[in-house]
Computed example of a mutant assay.
Amino acid sequence: MTSSPQTPPARIPGYDGGPFRHQPELLDERLFWLVHLHLGDTRDLEARALLSRLLGGDTWPVFTVPLASDHHLYVVYRALEGEAGIDYLVHHPDWDAAETLAQDDGHFMGPGLSWAELTAAADNCLPGGSTTDPHARLLLLLPAFGDDAVPDDAVDRLTAALRARTRVEEPGRLAATLLEHQGQWGATRWTTAEGGYLVNDGGYSFRNPANRFAWPTARLAQVATALTP
């Protein structure tokens, strides 16, 4: 179930774009999930029309998942001509700028979430976002996830979400496939850094301190704290 309509942020600090448009009603549409998870046939006229509307309009669709201690995750459909894609951002009011966890586009970056972080965000039941439904939240954030150590019950968890929201045939088989391939970057190993926060070894991840484009140590710790289950 989606939340009651909310006003989207007029701006996301440090993130250029917009104007934003909050569209929680899309989370109740099967076709949206097929497009969001790249499950639809791109030759399908309805799927193409929806994708064009999401990424080719004058406003940028945005979905919100609240986290503990006033942090928020934003999923933004970047409707920028020639550079369209989906950005996954995390922000706290005390931060000068939001941080990009992942980018789902032709120049992808990520992963931004471990399995434990993904399910914690899906299950926290905090109000004020686009939806409180764990199935919808799980699928909304799934493209930002990458983890080579998913638990044994992960397939069942993802199967339930796919069955509830997409009505695809053989959701269990699809769940196993999604967990095996894990987006554009594949499975990534997560470890605990010396400061006690999670980092990964992904070659395209902002949360890999070995990458030249990784966030500073303090921000790595802050983001990990925001996402701590």
Rank of each mutant, 00 (worst) to 15 (best):
R21P: 04
V62L: 07
N200S: 09
E117W: 09
A161K: 10
H38M: 04
G203T: 09
R48A: 11
A47H: 08
L227Q: 11
S3I: 05
P171W: 03
V155R: 15
A136R: 14
W185A: 06
L54F: 01
A79N: 05
V223P: 02
L126M: 02
E180P: 09
G172R: 12
Q23L: 14
Q103I: 00
W190S: 12
H38A: 08
G14H: 10
D201L: 14
R165Q: 13
A97H: 11
Q222A: 15
A136F: 10
A210N: 00
L162I: 13
T119R: 12
L54C: 02
P66C: 09
E29I: 05
E25D: 05
S4N: 02
T132A: 10
F32E: 06
R11W: 07
P24G: 10
S205W: 03
F145M: 12
A49C: 00
L39G: 12
A221S: 07
H91Y: 15
N208R: 09
P13I: 05
E83L: 11
P93N: 13
L67F: 06
P111Q: 04
Y74C: 00
R189M: 04
P66R: 09
H22F: 13
L113F: 03
T191M: 04
R207V: 01
L37V: 01
V90T: 15
V90L: 09
E169Q: 10
F213R: 08
A136I: 00
S4Q: 10
T59R: 08
L113I: 00
F32W: 05
P8W: 05
H71L: 08
G172Y: 14
L45T: 15
D41E: 02
A224C: 15
G128F: 07
S130V: 00
G196T: 14
A98Q: 09
S130W: 10
A218D: 09
V62G: 03
F32Y: 11
W215Y: 15
D16P: 03
D70K: 07
A102T: 01
V90D: 14
T188M: 13
L113E: 01
D152I: 09
I86W: 00
D133T: 00
P5V: 12
W33P: 08
T2R: 14
L174T: 15
G195A: 04
L39A: 06
I86T: 12
A136D: 06
G56F: 01
P5L: 08
L198Q: 14
